[in-house]
Amino acid sequence: MKRKLVYVSVIVALSQLGGCASLGVQPWERDLLAKDEMALGAEGVDLGLDDHIYFSKEATSGGRSFAGGGCGCN
């Protein structure tokens, strides 16, 4: 378990180095990454609706991507 944690944290650290030291997969190994539910913006409609709710109820919004405008306050 501990070893796994170390492993994960090393990967996380390495991923930040970018460039050739970075990690990745070969082009034919993207079967899992290509699944719709693995897209970063999967369930875009849900994310948009959530953004609208939290935008009007909390002081911070955005960060993930550009959200459409409008107040829809209160």
């Binding site: 492993y7 030291a21 070969q26």
Partner: peptide, 17 residues
Amino acid sequence: PRIARRLSLSLAICATL
């Protein structure tokens, strides 16, 4: 060790790049 293997894979990817 896993990390070394992982690193060598990275280098292999680099080589192909």
